[in-house]
């Protein structure tokens, strides 16, 4: 019985050693996924900020232009006479 047990243990240990020898070693290459996500995140943020900044400028300039056009219309000779 004890020899059977020892044989079983020996066979399982040999099997584990064989599996570990056959398996590929853990990769030593560094993980660059953080850099990739950082780069893409920064790009999308810059593009979005540029879009929003320009749209805000257009809205501000349009409002100012409309206001100035109203002022010109109110002060025009036709408006004054009316």
């Amino acid at each position: 019985m004890s020899s059977y047990l020892l044989a079983t243990i020996a066979v399982s240990l040999i099997g584990q050693a064989a599996d570990q020898a056959a398996a590929p070693p853990p990769s030593a290459a560094p993980d660059f996924r953080f850099h990739v996500w950082l780069a893409y995140g920064l790009v999308l943020v810059l593009l979005a900020l540029f879009t929003l900044w320009t749209v805000a400028q257009i809205r501000g300039a349009t409002r100012k232009l409309d206001h100035l056009k109203d002022v010109v219309e109110k002060n025009s000779p036709g408006a004054r006479q009316g």
């Binding site: 400028q57 257009i58 300039a61 100012k64 232009l65 002022v71 010109v72």
Partner: peptide, 25 residues
């Protein structure tokens, strides 16, 4: 973006010109 920036600069330029015209009357 180029077209968008051009529109923003053109509107700003028109507003500045009109402001000068209005306040120089």
């Amino acid at each position: 973006f180029w077209r968008l920036r051009y529109r923003a600069l053109a509107l700003k330029s028109d507003a500045e010109w009109l402001e000068e015209t209005v306040f120089s009357q």
